[in-house]
Design a protein around this nucleic acid. Structure first.
Lengths: 224, 224
DNA sequence: CCGGATCCGAATCGATACTG
DNA sequence: CAGTATCGATTCGGATCCGG
């Protein structure tokens, strides 16, 4: 089952053959968050047929993008190789580019823990992250704890329960907790100010000073 | 013919739906070189079926990535929108990433003027381009004139004849002219030195001081 | 020649069922 | 948990055809 060739000898074409088959880059997206078991991937990609998931995992391994790692206790996980992890800036750039074409969510569109994690990463502005922020964001059933410190963003999945190999839960309480939905994109794009977002019900502050949402809006932004 | 949805509401997914369908990103690659007519694209992508080319052009227009522009005299060209042109760094990064997975060319693999142009762009190191270089590279039937000046790379297609909207042919003669083939990747990767490349017949100097190939090898490099 | 549209067989994908 | 197997639906590929 060699990937269908485009008949060109070129690095761009090679990359396209390796990672742009249907579903492949979404598998990479989820693995950029952390190692995942077959079942984790299946749940994070609810609409992927299992045979396609199998096929892509096999192809990505053959391409040296991911690796199959038996777990200490039991089971196994898939994880990116160093080579695969080099796709991170590309996937994040694609996310920023695609952000501007997101319309309303279509019927049945889901937000998963991994997609939201990567969405935060795409919108994060390390250059502006001189001060710190510790918050918890909730979108539907997904809850993430995110902390910015030392110019770096760390995201930990609170709900649904993270895979066993996930990061450890932070101690203590976040400064800010809020619930939101798809319309948060208008805060990220700058079309809404934080106070407008709260007034219009796009964001609901669950805990903490609403002023902290200003800091969030500074730190997570994608502009045209 | 709405693109098949991945059922996720996320910028990365949106981008993937917009540009990773089969052939779409290769069309973008060629349009990054310049506006192209339907027939130019067809020739630059010899293995694309015409119905797929039509379909992709339509979808990319609907996605706001490309635009259909009637030509002054006659005919029409497709060109990237500003939004589409923002894919350039992403496509170039993908090319650098994929470069390291290029093996030997497979039977029937072609090198087109546009693919070679973009390959030069992916390998070009603007940070090292303080001095200038004016050279002509030949790979099979493809000949390009490339000039580095002011830290910028300009590539003009000499053969096969460029589309009418292409850049103007440079006046004067290049300092260096050489012919090469797929194995030039070993010069780009640093696995071969310029003198080794010449000795082993990977590069054939057609004109100019062979020392100028050192400069080429400095300016065009992709390392692991 | 340009810019496609149409037709049809081949390959891939999607949904579901099933298994070690 | 980690996949195969099966089979209909969809897309792709290759060729031909068509109007300007």
């Amino acid at each position: 089952m060699a990937a269908r060739s485009y008949g060109q000898y070129c690095g761009i074409t090679t990359a396209i053959e390796l990672v742009t088959e249907r579903w492949a880059l979404l598998i990479v997206r989820d693995l950029l968050v952390g190692p995942r078991r077959y079942t984790d991937l299946k749940q994070g990609l609810p609409k992927i047929p299992t045979n396609i998931l199998s096929a892509r995992l096999k192809e990505l391994q053959e391409g040296g993008v991911i690796r199959r790692v038996p777990l200490a206790r039991c089971g196994l996980v898939y994880e990116l190789t160093d080579y695969g992890r080099e796709l991170e800036p590309i996937v994040l750039s694609l996310g920023r580019w695609g952000f501007r074409s997101m319309g309303e969510p279509r019927e049945g569109d889901a937000v998963t823990a991994d997609s939201l994690t990567m969405a935060l990463r795409t919108a994060f502005r390390p250059d502006l992250a001189s001060s710190s922020l510790d918050f918890q964001i909730q979108v539907g059933p997904v809850e993430l704890r995110a902390r910015i410190a030392g110019g770096e963003l760390t995201v930990v999945q609170i709900a649904p329960p993270a895979p066993p190999v996930g990061g450890s839960l932070p101690t203590g309480e976040p400064e800010l907790r809020f619930a939101t939905g798809p319309d948060i994109r208008h805060l990220i794009s700058g079309k809404l100010t934080p106070s407008e977002a709260v007034e219009q019900g796009v964001v609901t502050i669950l805990k903490g000073n609403p002023k902290l949402l200003d800091r969030f809006a500074e730190l997570f932004r994608i502009e045209a």
